[in-house]
Design a protein around this nucleic acid. Structure first.
Lengths: 177, 177
DNA sequence: TGGTATGTTCTGTAAAGACAGAAACAACTG
DNA sequence: CAGTTGTTTCTGTCTTTACAGAACATACCA
């Protein structure tokens, strides 16, 4: 088990901190970053050693990462252990993460907003004030949802191209749709 | 203190839950949603009553919301109390939130990545593997940073127009930049 | 000057989340 | 089959975070 170099260590620690700000478990984030920078797939034991966390903790964290779809499991001939590695394509990773967050957060919110509006408009004293605000918010999320769908339908190569077109997009915007 | 209608209550509760998923304190999120749907500005006492939370909790939460720049304080003649309301423009809100998150998360991450790379490349056995991955990640964040800047420089009206142009953007993308 | 209304900061407790270690489980090996 | 290795799930503890209530601060008023 080779220890991490200072740069790698710093990256992993920072990633863990950032994770917590996004509602992602620190260990999960650390493992992800470790796998991302690791030149080769690692097994659970190595991960536990390197990060000084319990083996069980690694197990559940890996499952979470798997749920996000951003790690891969591989095997070595004659070795029963699971080896894990991160996706290399950063844009693909972002895409997957956005997809999952949409599923977990945007979709439920859309449903709740619709239900609230429903309720709001069928109640006897129709509360048009509240109803209008809810409708505004629903509009926002619908639009965001649409963008997500659009972005998610792009390949990561297309995404990269789109990103490279910032200035062009801006120009179009300024000088008329 | 009029209580919340069922639709409003549901919205507030959901908003609180979503907040926690984004690393935002539940009370903070609840207060924000309450102010957002409220037809009129509310004072701290009203907020505390409506949400059944301690006055002190409201105070700190409001300060946090203020830090995000998404609420406004107003006053009524002959009333010393502070009254709070949320921004109405949902896109403007999003813009402010993204701006703040960029400041808190993307900017520091860029700095860390640069420092890591620095360290990585000046160390004796230059670790080109790690260094390359860090560079990739830095590239990703640099691009994201660029988009943020771009988006943030747009007025909320422009943003809305851009959002309305999804299909057009897509077409451009498909049929050559 | 003390008294009252409002707002903020501090402090201890309670709730939630993270995690280590144990136990259970599963797959393989001789 | 018992023994070994690797993995997952369970359980209790520790840490962190959220929060109520108290104490404090500030401004207005009589």
């Amino acid at each position: 088990m080779e220890a991490l170099g200072p740069a790698a260590k710093r990256f992993v620690v920072h990633w863990g901190e950032m994770g917590t700000r996004w509602g992602i478990n620190r260990t999960v984030a650390q493992i992800h970053s470790l796998l991302y920078i690791s030149p080769r797939p690692l097994n659970a034991e190595e991960i536990a050693q390197t990060l000084s966390v319990a083996r069980s903790n690694v197990s559940t964290s890996l499952r979470e990462l798997d749920r996000w779809g951003i790690i891969k499991v591989s095997h070595v001939l004659g070795d029963r252990r699971d080896y894990f590695e991160s996706l290399r394509d950063t844009w693909e990773m972002i895409r997957l993460i956005l997809e999952e967050r949409k599923r977990r957060e945007i979709d439920p919110t859309l449903r709740v907003l619709e239900a609230c509006l429903e309720e709001c408009e069928t109640s006897k004293p129709v509360d048009s004030e509240v109803s209008e605000r809810l409708r505004n918010m629903l509009g926002l999320f619908t639009t965001i949802d649409g963008w997500f769908r659009e972005v998610m339908s792009l390949s990561s190569a297309e995404l990269k191209r789109l990103v490279g077109m910032r200035r062009k997009v801006r120009k179009i915007l300024r000088f008329g749709a």
